[in-house]
Design a protein around this nucleic acid. Structure first.
Length: 304
DNA sequence: AAGAAGGTCAACCGCAACCCG
DNA sequence: TCGGGTTGCGGTTGACCTTCT
């Protein structure tokens, strides 16, 4: 026996909603609230199924909806969240009050995908297009929630003194702005440390060093890991070690730090995103009981 | 000016998770 | 614990709009 339809579709209207239907639905919900979507169309006098009413309310009629296009900051936040959460649009939408998952999904498929491709990044993996996942460190892992997470590595080493580099820096600045504290269903606490930026010039190439202050996290006893993870120093060393022609390389970076609570509160998982010339490095799965050297081991074996 | 091609987005579909008796 | 009903989610579709030729 086949699956039963969600509702009796005989005699029900489909397709675009009319203004009259919108008014009926809105008035009903504002006056009565939502108790059972299945009953809403009957009680509101609509020839629609409950599912359709729910969708119309959530995606269009809800009074708290934010109208208008996405800002660049919002786009960058979406990219950052997508790199961590994948196509879990509802989770991503939870970070944007007034935005719907459908809206974000549509925006991703029509705009952001193209933008990432233009930047040479695969919209699915967030890695440079054409880069194969040969390294074990780039595999998808499962966390305690059985939610896939991708260990990502990208590089901007080739983006030296050219337009791409300039564009990447602009991108990076936007991404920095996009980082914000967030409490969500995944219980991810994102901490944005204060940064001190120093700029200088070598052979006409602007160099940027970002020193981070992790005072933010001292209050929750993660000072150990925060003191260990001096991203900027380590990145500088690694970038220089891995590029013979390092004098021609300009790079900039910033980091945001997240601590994902697990059932075992004594062993939280560290998540960190480091932006290098606009490319996002996601550092996931670190455990602050480990030594920094061990934590960084897999990262050292990734491609540049 | 008109048709083609491409882009956008509201809405639908089917599945899975959740709820509750 | 089970099973039916309901809700939520993500993929997909198709109508409408805009841009291109």
């Amino acid at each position: 026996m086949g699956r039963q339809p969600c509702c009796d579709k005989v005699g029900l209207k489909r397709g675009p909603w009319t203004i009259e239907e919108d008014h009926k639905l809105m008035n009903f919900i504002l006056n009565n609230g939502i108790h059972c979507w299945r009953m809403v169309p009957k009680l509101a006098g609509l020839l629609r199924c409950g599912k359709s009413c729910r969708l119309r309310w959530i995606n269009y009629l809800r009074p708290d909806l934010k109208r208008g296009g996405f800002t660049e900051v919002e786009e960058n936040q979406i990219i950052q969240l997508h790199s961590r959460l994948g196509n879990r649009w509802s989770k991503i939408a939870a970070h944007f009050p007034g935005r719907t998952d459908n809206e974000i999904k549509n925006h991703w498929n029509t705009r952001i995908k193209k933008r990432l491709k233009l930047l040479g990044l695969d919209p699915v993996t967030h890695q440079p297009i054409g880069q194969h996942k040969e390294n074990d460190t780039n595999k998808v892992v499962e966390d305690q929630d059985d939610q896939p997470k991708t260990l990502e590595t990208t590089t901007s080493a080739e983006s030296s003194v050219d337009d791409d580099h300039h564009r990447s820096k602009v991108e990076k600045n936007s991404l920095e702005k996009a980082a914000k504290p967030a409490d969500d269903d995944d219980q991810v606490r994102e901490l944005v440390p204060e940064t001190k930026e120093e700029r200088w010039n070598i052979d006409g190439v602007e160099q940027i060093s970002t020193e981070m202050n992790y005072n933010d996290v001292l209050n929750i006893n993660y000072e150990t890991v925060c003191q260990k993870l001096d991203f900027s120093t380590w990145m500088e060393q690694e970038m220089n070690n891995n590029n013979n022609n390092s004098n021609n390389i300009a790079y900039s970076y910033s980091s945001s730090l997240s601590l994902e609570e697990s059932n075992n509160l004594s062993s939280p998982t560290l998540l960190a995103d480091t932006y290098v010339d606009g490319s996002i490095f996601s550092w996931e799965g670190f455990n602050y009981h480990h030594h920094l050297e061990q934590d960084l081991f897999f990262f050292q074996n990734t491609q540049y």
